[in-house]
Amino acid sequence: MKSILFVCMGNICRSPMAEAMFRDQFEQRSESAEFTVDSAATSRWEVGNSPHHGTQKILKAHGISSKGIRARQITTDDFYRADYIIGMDRENVEDLMLLAPEGTHRKIHLYLDLVPEKKGQGIPDPWYTGDFDETYSLIEEGLPYWLTFFEE
């Protein structure tokens, strides 16, 4: 079983949206037994909170559940447990690289790096932009590339 961990700053907007969207895809493809999907934050600011109402609203509009998702901070164990640790923007990846124990750095990726012509770009934080549609669209755009990558 492969373990995937999405990470953003607070774990209430981008990373829980990605977690819910990928869980939904694995369930639709009958691959939920092959993958575990989780999300976490680089900060402690939102620990214990549900996804942002904007995240919940757009997921619900697309028929995707965010049930059971609660913000949490990444732990040292996460770096050993997860096969893939995917930061939603460059700052997240930089923070993850600083937090990562020796030997785990190769697991860290930037979400949009697999999307042609978007390598090196981050997904803007809708906490600041207010644009949850953009966040959803960018995660959705990368989804097929990641699904192919995970299956290799």
Rank of each mutant, 00 (worst) to 15 (best):
A33G: 09
G87N: 09
I123H: 06
R14D: 01
L5M: 12
H53Y: 09
K107G: 04
V7K: 07
R29L: 09
F149K: 14
V93A: 10
L114Y: 05
E19L: 04
D125F: 13
D131S: 05
S50F: 06
L98F: 00
G63N: 07
Y84D: 03
K118D: 01
K107H: 07
W45Q: 00
S65P: 08
E140P: 03
S39P: 03
S32I: 07
A18W: 05
H105I: 01
E117F: 15
L112W: 10
D125H: 11
I64D: 05
Q56C: 11
T42Y: 11
A20P: 02
C8W: 09
D125C: 12
D113N: 15
G122D: 06
N11L: 08
F35I: 06
A18P: 09
I12K: 15
T104I: 13
D89R: 12
E141H: 03
L114I: 02
D133T: 09
A18Y: 13
G142K: 11
T76Q: 14
M17F: 05
G120E: 04
Q25V: 11
S3L: 08
W45C: 01
V115K: 13
Y80W: 03
W45P: 00
D125I: 09
D131P: 07
F132R: 08
W146L: 03
E117T: 15
L147H: 05
T129E: 11
H109F: 15
L98H: 02
S39I: 04
S15G: 12
Y84A: 05
N49C: 13
F22M: 06
L114K: 12
D131C: 02
S39A: 02
A71E: 04
L138E: 10
T55H: 07
T129I: 14
M17A: 02
D83T: 06
D78L: 14
L112C: 13
Q28M: 13
L114E: 05
R72N: 11
M97Q: 14
T129Q: 12
Y111V: 12
V115G: 12
I123W: 08
G103M: 08
D131H: 03
T148V: 15
E31F: 02
Y136S: 03
E31H: 04
C13L: 10
A61F: 00
S39G: 02
T129P: 08
E140V: 04
Q56K: 15
L143V: 01
M21P: 02
R29H: 03
V37S: 02
G130H: 07
I139P: 01
N11P: 01
K60P: 00
E31V: 06
L96P: 00
S3Q: 13
T148N: 15
K119L: 00
E134M: 15
L5V: 10
E91P: 00
T55G: 04
I74M: 09
I12Q: 14
I86Y: 12
E94N: 13
F150M: 01
E140I: 08
F79R: 01
T42S: 11
